[in-house]
Amino acid sequence: MTAATTTQALVSVEDISLSFGSVRALRDVSLTLRPGEITALVGDNGAGKSTLVRCLSGIHRPDSGRIVFDGEETKFSSPEDARKAGIETVHQNLALVEDLTVWQNLFLNRELTNPLGLLDRKAMKREAQRMVSTLAVNVPNVTSTVRRLSGGQRQAVSICRAAGFSSKLVIMDEPTAALGVQETERVEQLILKLREDGHAVLLISHNFAQVMRLSDQVWVMRSGRCVAGRRTAETTGEEIVALITGAKQS
């Protein structure tokens, strides 16, 4: 494997395996993510990308192997633990509550309260406005409900939530899969902005052009294994496709 150097890795996944019954979803997967970089994770459907991401975001626990995040071995037992450690996930289904407002979604389960234990709505709205404007997210108003937002705006809110709260790693599962050309463009700019602001990003994408455009490092998964890693600058879309399909062994 032409792995990137493991020194100063933000995340290093070491030989993790996970089975669901007789299905071996992950087999001895090892990879690293560097701080301040966009790392892409590619692979066919069922290659294990989402399962790996779920391990990182605290939804699943690997059967064996370990995940070292920011110098410490992680033992997440819930998504909340991962969030506390600084790993935020933008789920494919976005994990937004449609009937709640933008600011309520941004602060979901992180609500600010006053000394009486009551919600500090004013502070949350103000802070939400700031979060939205620093990312230059095009959202009409933080007091409107998510139901009224377009697909791209929802994605933006979701990314905004992940980028806020001083997260160190933002995981994005197919962030542009359901978006039109213009909205995809905007979301890509948001992802680049995240990197500029110092967040590491783990990007799952089926769009090779996007991967080549955005990422610094690419990891390729095939049937539960991480089969190759490449610096994006040193590879081509064709090579990645060949690695995914198994036409080329690393």
């Binding site: 969030r83 994990a95 937004l96 449609e98 979901l108 919600l119």
Partner: peptide, 28 residues
């Protein structure tokens, strides 16, 4: 009313009812 609209618990009730999946993903 205060419990529903001015506490974390109330927001979580609405979130769990609106989208159990989203609520769970944020650790509720």
């Amino acid at each position: 009313h205060v419990l529903l609209f001015n506490t974390r618990f109330g927001t979580h009730v609405l979130a769990a009812g609106g989208s159990a999946e989203a609520a769970t993903a944020t650790g509720i």
